[in-house]
Design a protein around this nucleic acid. Structure first.
Lengths: 217, 217
DNA sequence: CTTAAAAATGAGTGAGTACTCACACTATAA
DNA sequence: TTATAGTGTGAGTACTCACTCATTTTTAAG
């Protein structure tokens, strides 16, 4: 259920029954695997086809081009993944005063993103790699960041600065330092050194403590 | 002089006169540009040749394969860049007691790496992108990190923990938090948002302060 | 069963790829 | 001048790539 949750995001329907053949699922599975391992450009459609036990033409029945296959894999994790969860789950709760302290918010955010990435590390690797070269991905990424993440974070930081919990620092700098530590942790954990023996709970706690020391009033 | 310092690193000789033709220099220049802009796999040798105003055969006169050209570009920045400066400049000075405080060391390190990357951002982008897929690069990176950076940092941290300046945290965690903030700053500054209007001196100072808050005893 | 639509096939296509090689040019030194 | 070695050339080669399409197989409803 949890392991293949991404496939539902890619298909686009969670509840309704949606036609998806075994072969289509295998194409996606193999494509994600290979794109993450060897890179989009170094993976041929014929290779995806043979490893998925499918004819090459079958890929192009479902996806007009190879790039469309890439975007089908990457876009849901980008849009349904990054933006809404931060907005709805976190921000709403914060202003509903579920979180009394910035530290609680930070802890929730880090755990939440950790859980999200656990089952999507390969897709995220593809996303980070290819964002550099495909304008479609890059534009989406920048738009989502500035319209959602950045705006919401600005509000949250102002909120907790007003409550006297945070240093009065330039907002951009606070966001940079905070995201750098969070993203740095997640990227190190899931992409650079996924094999290292982490005690994840401890690392999360240390990271929260580290960020808080630098930002609290 | 400073802008094309990388070419000396690539040729391998700083002092001695070393034969390098105009065309060879143009090949390197164009290759770096294109690899950084569009990625190694998406850049063809014929394209490099035409943009450098050179016949395609000329590239293969100097570099047996396309990959050899990539490694020629990337290896010097990896070896002559990352490892020795940290080792010689920083570590030596630290144990010569030029740095009384961890904060001074941190400030020096950040400024030093900042200067280093300023003229090598495109090469560093290529390095980070391609390290994921080329074992030659990846192996070098891991070897240099564990044998140099990691070992030296371990000593330095122990040194300042003994002096009572640093929290007694697990060394691995301290290194992770510290490097995450440093690398995060440099990558954001030079690769993700090079066009953003940074006040670099201020950002360096804030980053040093942020790291120190989280690590000092 | 019949039948029609949907899914799947895989040989085929043309464009593009990294790389080669026989030849030409140029510079230096005898 | 001639000899030699390094540099440069670009048409040519074998191959791989993403993508097509006429055909076959599978699915599902009547």
């Amino acid at each position: 259920m949890d392991e293949k949750q991404w496939i539902m995001e890619i298909i686009g329907q969670t509840d309704k029954e949606y036609k998806i053949t075994d072969k289509q699922a295998r194409i996606l599975e193999v494509a994600i695997q290979e794109f993450a391992d060897k890179g989009y450009s170094n993976t041929s459609t014929s290779e995806i086809a043979s490893k998925a036990g499918v004819a090459e033409g079958t890929i192009f029945r479902h996806y007009k081009t190879k790039k469309e296959l890439l975007l089908a894999i990457v876009t849901p994790t980008l849009t349904k993944g990054i933006a809404p969860i931060i907005e709805r789950t976190c921000v709403k709760d914060i202003f509903n005063k579920e979180y009394e302290s910035f530290e609680d918010f930070l802890r929730f955010l880090l755990n939440n993103r950790y859980q999200f990435l656990r089952s999507r590390a390969p897709i995220m690797k593809i996303l980070l790699q290819e964002a550099a070269f495909h304008d479609e991905i890059n534009a989406d990424l920048k738009r989502l960041f500035t319209n959602r993440v950045y705006q919401e974070f600005t509000k949250i930081i102002a909120h907790f600065q007003d409550k006297g919990q945070l240093k009065i620092f330039p907002t951009d700098t606070v966001i940079r330092l905070m995201l750098t530590s969070i993203v740095g942790f997640l990227v190190t954990r899931f992409i650079i050194l996924p094999g290292y023996k982490w005690d994840d709970a401890v690392e999360v706690e240390n990271t929260v403590a580290f960020i808080m020391s630098g930002l609290k009033a």
